[in-house]
């Protein structure tokens, strides 16, 4: 019962911050501004949900609450793709401007990369999931080296374009891209429903899950693909927000103190939406766009992560 109360509280909070986002300082041109804001809001809700669920699944699979799926190198790959496009085609090139093509290219690269990574891992028996992550992280560093090499060479004006890409942004998201992302997300989430009942058991660890009759390899492989697609969609849509998932999923765990994924899925998605929309209100009206939401979230999420690490030992 208390779970229900908390969920309702979160829904109210989400509604309040969404309303705030939509109507604060709307001004006279509301018939122009409102649809713009609605579009932005849709992007926020979509991204927030997708990242929260992907991180929750990922942490359950890895049995670890201090990991986030972006670390398998997807963020770095996204930056590499963006930088490469600007580097070779220039900032005026169609691909950077045409968001639809850009979205498709980034998404394609990230999904292919994740699948290749999984393939390498699952070819061998006795896979260690940490090994996969470390491999991804190193490859990510590798991409990062190339990216910063090109960034140093790029002329400062062009660099401004990349700078915009470096930070997740909900501005200027085109409707058709948003629709594309929503459709993919809907399909993936629908597919995920098939595996939801296994999540609680998976959180008990591999051996217990196998003992209880879960086809472990099959399930985990599917779930990892789901995670990769979700994260890729979010990143290609708005850009990298590495630590958002880490932050919101852990807040959801702290709030609800449960292991039940039927609750956690909704809880973390709601926390995520609240964090993003309230954060965006802050950025727009308090900081008046002097900083980026994703920069703040990475900052807060990062500090929270260090806190989590230092607390690990207590119990």
């Amino acid at each position: 019962m208390r779970e229900k109360g908390k969920l309702i509280l979160l829904i109210v909070l989400a509604a309040v911050s969404i309303t705030g986002f939509m109507f604060i300082e709307l001004g006279a041109n509301w018939d122009y501004a409102l649809p713009r804001r609605a579009e932005k809001m849709a992007a926020i809700v979509l991204t927030g949900t997708v990242i929260a669920i992907a991180t929750l699944l990922f942490q359950t699979i890895t049995n670890n609450r201090i990991l986030t799926p972006s670390i398998i190198g997807l963020d770095s790959l996204y930056m590499l793709v963006q930088t490469t496009l600007v580097f070779f085609l220039g900032s005026t090139s169609l691909t950077v401007m045409n968001k639809q093509v850009n979205f498709a290219i980034s998404l394609g690269f990230m999904i292919v990369f994740a699948l290749v990574l999984y393939r390498i891992l699952f070819k061998r028996e006795g896979q260690n999931i940490y090994f996969l992550l470390l491999l991804g992280l190193i490859v990510g560093t590798f991409f990062g080296s190339f990216t910063s090499f090109m960034q140093v060479l790029i002329d400062p004006n062009e660099f401004q374009i990349i700078l915009d890409r470096m930070f997740a942004s909900f501005n200027n998201i085109q409707t058709d891209v948003l629709v594309m992302a929503s459709v993919i997300t809907a399909v993936v989430l629908l597919y995920m429903m098939k595996f939801v009942k296994y999540l609680d058991v998976l959180s008990l660890g591999k051996e217990t899950a196998v003992n209880l009759g879960v086809d472990y390899d099959y399930t985990v492989k599917r779930l990892l693909v789901i995670v990769a697609v979700l994260i890729s969609v979010a990143t290609a849509l708005v850009g990298p927000i590495t630590f958002l998932g880490l932050l919101v999923v852990n807040v959801a765990y702290e709030m609800f103190k449960t292991y039940k994924h039927s609750v956690l899925i909704f809880a973390s998605a709601l926390v995520s939406i609240v964090a993003l929309s309230a954060g965006q209100v802050l950025v727009e009206h308090v900081f008046t766009f002097s900083t980026q939401l994703s920069v703040i979230i990475n900052f807060v999420g990062g500090i929270y992560f260090i806190y989590l690490l230092l607390r690990e030992s207590k119990s």
């Binding site: 609450r65 217990t208 196998v210 003992n211 009759g213 879960v214 086809d215 292991y259 119990s315």
Partner: peptide
């Protein structure tokens, strides 16, 4: 044999069971 069928027939408990779940 399907894993789910086996789970009704055989149960295994390994030695290390340090769960950090609130259960």
């Amino acid at each position: 044999t399907k894993s789910r069928e086996l789970a009704k027939k055989i149960a295994i408990l390994k030695q290390s069971n340090h769960l950090s779940l609130r259960l």
